[in-house]
Write a protein that binds this DNA or RNA. Structure first.
Lengths: 243, 243
DNA sequence: ATATGTCAAATGTATAACATTTAAAAAAGG
DNA sequence: CCTTTTTTAAATGTTATACATTTGACATAT
C-alpha cells in the first residue's frame, strides 16, 4: 500500500504570517523597517485585506512588529527582545500555573550562579555602576512605585553582566514578575518592608572584592531573605484582602 | 493648573481581547470550554465581526484558545502551558538573539541544581521510571528522529520532579530548543554522535544512590560533554553547509 | 513666525455575501 | 436492523466594499 502524507490546509492568514515572520527573522526586514502597507500586501499575496490584517495582528501579538496609525503609519519591525518571554511568564503566573514561592525558589537556584558569572566578566566601570546603584537605593525614599523599580536595577545589571542572553532574559523576566507582584502587594506592605534599603550591601562588598564565592553566597542569602519577606507579604495580603 | 491624564484610545479588538483573556485567566471559561461563537460575541460586545475575529486570532496566537472549524467548531480554551514561553525562546534563537553556546551554558548553570532538587523529591516509583528511560536509550537504535526525542525524556522527567513549575518550563523549553537544533544538525552528525547512548548512565547511578551531590556532579559533567559535542556539530555543520 | 486649516495616506471598523469545513441527522440501500 | 450515503445546519474562513479615525505633512492665513 502506498504511503500518503496527510494534507494540512493551512489558513491563508497563517501562511501570510509565516512568510512575513520568516522575512523578519532572516532580516529581509530589519528593525525599524516598515512592512509594506496593507494595500501592497494584498497585491503581493493576492489575498483579501482581512487575511493580511489578521496576519499582521498576530505579528504584533508576538512582538515582531509595532502597528502605528496615521498617514505615516504601518507595521514597523521591532528589535526582538525578551518581552514576549516575559509576558508568557506573567500570564502563567496570573493563571495560577506558577506560585510566588516557586518563582522565588527559581531565583535562588539561578541568580547566585549567574552573579558568579557576572563578577568574572565585570570591568572596573561595571563595578562603579553597581556601586552607584546600591548607593541610590539608600538615598531614594518615597511611597511611589519608583522604589520598587529601583530595587530591581541591580538584578538587571547583573543579568547583563553574565554575557549570556538567555540567562539575561530569564533573570529579567523573573525580576519583572516579582516587581509587578510587589506593586500589587503594596497596600498592605510598604515596598521598603519587602525589600528594605541595605539588602544589597553585602552583595556590593563581595563584588568590590571580586570574590565570586562571596558573591554567590551574598546573592543566595539575599534572595532567601527576600523570599521569606515576599511570602509573608503575600500571606498578609490574602488575609486582609481576601476575595 | 489642573493635572490632566492623556487619553489612550484603545482599539476595540484589543479591548475585546483583554476582556476575553481576563475571563479565561479567572477561569470564567475553563480549559475545554468553548467561547461564545463569533455571532454571539458580536452581540455581547456590540462590535463588528472583524473586531471579534482579530481578538480571537490573538488569543490563539498566545495559546489561550484553539480554533476549530466546522459545525461543532469554535474557540476552545486550552490548558495554559509553557508552550508560549518555549516558542518565544525558539524565535529568539532563530533571530540570532541567542546562540547555541549560550543555551548550553544556561543548561549547565540550571540543570545540575534542578536535578539536585529532583533527587530529593523523587519516590521509588520515580526512580524506576528513570531507570526505564535510561535503559530504553540503550536498546533504541535507528536513524530517525525518535532517538533525538528519546534523549530528552530524562531531562523532562527531572524537570517535573523538581516540583517547581517555573523551572520545569524553563528546562523543558531549553530541551526542546536543543532537540530541534540537533535535528537540523543531523545531516552532518548522527544524533548518536552528539548524544550517544550511555551518557546518562552515571546520572542514573547517582539517582539510584539518592546521592544529591553526585547527581549534581553527574548532570554537570554530562551537560559539559554534551555542550562540547553540540558546538563541534554546529561547527561541522557550518563548514559543510555554509550558506 | 506661529497658529490654524486642509489634505492624503494609512490603519480601524462595519456590513454583507459567499466558501469551506465539520459533525450530526436524515435518507437510502442491503 | 445495520451500514453506507446524502443532506443539512452551524460554525469558521475569505472576499469585497464602504466608511471612520488617526496622524503627519503641507498649505494658508493672521
Amino acid at each position: 500500500m502506498p504511503t500518503f502524507t496527510p494534507i494540512k490546509q493551512v489558513k491563508a492568514s497563517d501562511e501570510v504570517y509565516n512568510q512575513l515572520k520568516e522575512a523578519i527573522l532572516t532580516e529581509q526586514y530589519k528593525a525599524g523597517d516598515k512592512l509594506p502597507s496593507e494595500r501592497e500586501l494584498i497585491e503581493m499575496f493576492q489575498v483579501s485585506r482581512t487575511v493580511v490584517r489578521e496576519a499582521i495582528k498576530v505579528l504584533e501579538a508576538n512582538s515582531f512588529v509595532e502597528i502605528k496609525q496615521g498617514s505615516t503609519g504601518g507595521a514597523f519591525v521591532r528589535h526582538i527582545t525578551f518581552e514576549r518571554l516575559s509576558n508568557a511568564c506573567f500570564d502563567l503566573f496570573m493563571s495560577g500555573k506558577m506560585s510566588l514561592p516557586e518563582i522565588a525558589q527559581a531565583r535562588i537556584l539561578i541568580e547566585p550562579a549567574a552573579a558568579k558569572l557576572a563578577v568574572r566578566n565585570c570591568t572596573d566601570a561595571d563595578l562603579d555602576k553597581i556601586k552607584q546603584i546600591v548607593e541610590s537605593e539608600h538615598t531614594l525614599s518615597g511611597e511611589n512605585d519608583d522604589m520598587v523599580y529601583n530595587r530591581s536595577h541591580l538584578h538587571y545589571l547583573i543579568a547583563e553582566l553574565t554575557g549570556n542572553r538567555f540567562l539575561e532574559a530569564i533573570i529579567k523576566s523573573l525580576a519583572i514578575l516579582v516587581r509587578e507582584v510587589t506593586k500589587d502587594l503594596q497596600p498592605s506592605f510598604h515596598p521598603d518592608k519587602v525589600h528594605p534599603a541595605g539588602m544589597h550591601d553585602e552583595l556590593l562588598r563581595a563584588f568590590l572584592d571580586r570574590n565570586d564565592e562571596a558573591v554567590f553566597k551574598a546573592m543566595h542569602d539575599h534572595l532567601h531573605e527576600f523570599r521569606d519577606r515576599l511570602i509573608a507579604a503575600e500571606e498578609n495580603f490574602r488575609t486582609h484582602y481576601s476575595k
